[in-house]
């Protein structure tokens, strides 16, 4: 009989197990690390600006992701990039390892340095507000 009780719990837990985080958890954690409140406006400004510190082929996040995170972008290889905004693409910002890997790569490509926790919180706040 106990198994009959456990089974529905397992089924409930299964979809959650694939998700290691949520956009709001990410904002909360990065904000706590940064010690300042997240700002969607600052996130948008960082995302859409042209930067000079990084690699010459990728001056902006928008180079590959496009200006509207609700739409697909295009990698320099010709491969489409799924939208970044969670409303347009519910898989986004649900896997902490994936989020950290791509912030790590792309902040270095675009800015020539790692993003700060405050910058990550800002960008995710903006993406989540769309």
């Amino acid at each position: 009989m106990k198994y009959l009780l456990i089974l529905p719990l397992c089924l409930l837990a299964a979809p959650l197990a694939a998700q290691s985080t949520t956009p709001s958890d990410l904002i909360a954690n990065y904000t706590a690390e940064a010690g300042v409140a997240a700002s969607a406006e600052r996130g948008q400004a960082l995302f859409t600006a042209s930067h000079t510190g990084g690699k010459p082929d990728t001056p902006s996040c928008t180079t590959c992701h496009g200006a509207d995170p609700r739409a697909a972008g295009l990698a320099r290889t010709g491969k489409p990039i799924e939208p970044l905004a969670p409303l347009a693409n519910p898989e986004r910002l649900t896997d902490l390892k994936f989020v950290e890997k791509w912030f790590g790569r792309n902040c270095n490509s675009v800015l020539g340095r790692d993003c700060t926790s405050a910058e990550k919180a800002d960008v995710i706040a903006w993406l989540s507000s769309l």
């Binding site: 690699k55 082929d57 790569r105 792309n106 490509s109």
Partner: peptide
């Protein structure tokens, strides 16, 4: 991979 054809693919 830190400079993989102009992008960081580390």
């Amino acid at each position: 991979l830190e400079d993989h054809f102009g992008e960081n693919a580390g």
